[in-house]
Design a protein around this nucleic acid. Sequence first.
DNA 1: GGTTTTGCTCGTCAAACATC
DNA 2: GATGTTTGACGAGCAAAACC
Length: 310
Amino acid sequence: MSKCGRKKYIKTNLRQMTMEIDSQQDGSIPDSVAESESAHMQMQTGQNSIPTLAQVATIAETDESAESESVIDFHKRREILSRRPSYRKILNELSSDVPGVPKIEEEKSEEEGTSPNIAAMAVPTSIYQTSTGQYIAIAQGEAIQISNPGSDGVQGLQALTMTNSGAPPPGATIVQYATQSADGTQQFFVPGSQVVVQDEETELAPSHISATTGDMPTYQIRAPTTALPQGVVMAASPGSLHSPQQLAEEATRKRELRLMKNREAAKECRRRKKEYVKCLESRVAVLEVQNKKLIEELETLKDIYSPKTD
DNA sequence: GGTTTTGCTCGTCAAACATC
DNA sequence: GATGTTTGACGAGCAAAACC
């Protein structure tokens, strides 16, 4: 069996096992309880509150064996296939119910060090994260500030300030993309088709803008290299596209942009999922302690109020 | 020491969902 | 309804553990 075949096999078996457990539980746990309790816990066991495709397939198989019930109602199918709410929603709902549960913020979580760094600056209008975890804060269109998350959140603060001599045109895009090029540098695209490049080796002489104190990497404004790093394409004005080649290039550019966005979205989604699972785990711990206390209390009360037999 | 297994992360796709 | 966002599913790759 190939490696991926194995994984698929394992995943399918896991789902089937999970479904078996489900079906066993169905007999012993009232639906209302099972629904409310499992809704929050299913993520940990890999279950979805909504059946997976495998489960749907199993439903279909069951239907095959029982020909009389072979047709699943369309709405029922829709219900089966519909997604459960996002982690953010679930966790925020959870946190509104339980005071101890932290909320998932719209921006980056504190564990990534955003808030301590950014809070010290002027209130940024936009925050971008690079592929290496650095943050770029753009404050009111006047300054670009770059910060490293760092383990302690504050230590890695690096300020790269770009002051505009004049007011930027309204709605101007200050940073278009942030990525890591093949040579290990980071490039941030700024107006005028220029590029802010981070040099990881400090041997490079600082250019007209740089942050070169201590171990801080240097930054330079350069004209963009002809060969853009992977996944980075400069924005083109849509009105100037005519030839099929240009259209193809535009399509490629859009695709790459979409892929890049989705890549980041997937990362963010996984981060949220981890946070969600952590939250559930901590909630389990709290509830276990609570449960233990209640049992102890019950025992104490039993001792007090139970009639003495001797 | 080489091979296989296991566990994890990542990028991508597709579909549901949200927003304008 | 067009566009953007979110997330489950899948496959690929890698590293460590387990096995021979």
